[in-house]
Nucleic acid binder design. Structure first.
Length: 391
RNA sequence: GGUGGGGUGGCCGAGUGGCUAAUGGCAGCAGACUGUAAAUCUGCCGGGCUUCGCCCUACGAAGGUUCGAAUCCUUCCCCCACCA
């Protein structure tokens, strides 16, 4: 290691070298591991809350940490628009700026190629966005995405990829997949020029729902390696769940077994259970906080809409089995009241609960893997979840 | 007591002869949300039913004009403003 930021990752007492991933035990395709990053160690499998603008919406960093999060996301495109990476770099980088002391990962802006499809045009060089903030033209290329992410200073930078919709034809998915590979070459080159050993770059597998394309994407990606971790992108973007499971299964056997696997943008609780069983180590998803703000909570008995009239006088917590700060203290009736009255505390409390719910789920899954009981745990978990009142 | 204005679905409020079971908004109810343009969006919202449709009851009350009335006329009740 070199440089002032290059201290060994001793935050959690880890003796691993930065970016080292050690698998402690496997259970079928599933793995329990430890990932060492410059800002600390991450036990896997785990869920990474999304903090697009350098904040997990509505939550104080301490709350996010107390909920069990050990790594969170930031977003290249949105932080580039405001406050801008030069500002963040001048203020000491994303970690110091936000005060989040633990590992961070920045998404590359690739997802905005998909989610802001109406505001951008793609060329081989890169993507031209019309800013939704002021209408200005903003161009993102594989190179500029790397430059921005290096300026932001997260532990993990993501490759700039071309995401296509889940319904995309073979031709379209192939185009996005091949472009993602070509861009990966450019990402890697630029990242190597910039980054010291305080940041690693992870590639993203694309290919839509087409097994042959997924395989080619993986081969092309590995040929451009080595990598300290590999992401699977372009899932849960409109394709049926069984299709996502099939893609994961087809990749599980071909992915390097000793590298962390990150399933991007997933997901819902049942997706985490299914994903972990298929070898996924890392997840991220906005649903925990977005749905939380919208009053939709995950509980061990299924989904609950806290705005519902049936909670008007309910004394029980959101989820009696939950150990989050919300469930420890507040009744469903109070949470419902906060939503009806449009008090911001309600948005925060349910967001926090959802974050903790996913993290507790991954913690339980990890324990089950270590205990060699993942199958049983998964079955029971899904049965209880789908058997709930709102399932 | 006089003059003027007004009474519309839970509330506010459009609507002056057929296109009106009645615009909007609010409240209420339900649903959606997966690498965040989202504290957002969508649907329902007089009653009933066999609910892509049918049947009731409806615009203060009663009566009338008209093929047809929330809309026009008469009487009554109530509210508001001003004047006595």
């Amino acid at each position: 290691m070199k440089g002032v930021n290059g201290q060994r990752s001793t935050v959690n007492g880890s003796l691993l070298a930065p970016f080292e991933f050690r698998i402690e035990r496997t259970a079928g395709a599933a793995r329990a591991g430890r990932l060492a990053l410059p800002h600390g160690e991450v036990l896997t499998p785990t869920f990474m809350p999304v903090g697009t603008y350098g904040t997990v919406r509505g939550l104080h960093p301490e709350e996010v940490e107390q909920a069990g999060a050990r790594i969170i996301l930031g977003n290249t495109y949105h932080l580039h628009l405001r406050p801008g990476e030069s500002t963040i770099r001048a203020l000491g980088g994303l970690h110091r700026f936000t005060t989040w002391p633990r590992p961070m990962l920045t998404d590359s802006g690739g997802f905005q190629v998909f989610s802001l499809a109406g505001l951008r045009s793609i060329s081989e060089e890169g993507v031209e966005f019309t800013s939704h903030i002021d209408g200005s033209t903003r161009t993102l290329t594989p190179e500029s995405s790397m430059e921005i992410q290096w300026a932001l200073g997260a532990d993990v930078a993501m490759a700039f990829d071309h995401v296509v919709a889940g319904q995309a034809s073979h031709d379209l998915a192939e185009e996005g997949m091949e472009r993602t590979l070509r861009w990966l070459t450019r990402c890697r080159r630029r990242h190597e020029e910039l980054a010291e050993e305080t940041q690693t770059l992870w590639p993203i597998i694309q290919g839509g729902i087409h097994d042959d394309l997924r395989r080619r994407s993986l081969e092309g990606t590995l040929a451009r390696g080595p990598w300290t971790g590999i992401a699977i992108g372009g899932l849960s973007v409109g394709e049926p769940k069984p299709v996502m499971h099939r893609v994961l299964e087809s990749l599980a056997g071909a992915l390097p077994p000793d590298r962390p696997r990150y399933l991007m943008g997933v997901g819902f609780p049942e997706d985490l259970v299914e994903g972990i069983a298929r070898g996924v180590d890392l997840f991220d998803c906005v649903a925990a906080t977005r749905n939380g703000r919208h009053g939709s909570a995950w509980t061990s008995g299924g989904r609950v809409n806290i705005r519902g009239a049936d909670h008007r006088t309910a004394l029980e917590p959101l989820d009696p089995a939950c150990d989050c700060a919300t469930c420890a203290r507040f009744s469903r009736s109070y949470l419902r009241h906060l939503f009806v009255a449009e008090e911001m505390l309600g948005l925060r409390l349910v967001s926090l609960h959802n974050i903790r719910f996913l993290l507790r789920l991954t913690e339980e899954a990890r324990r089950a893997i270590l205990a060699g009981e993942l199958d049983r745990w998964s079955r029971e978990w899904l049965r209880r979840y789908h058997g709930g009142a709102d399932a």
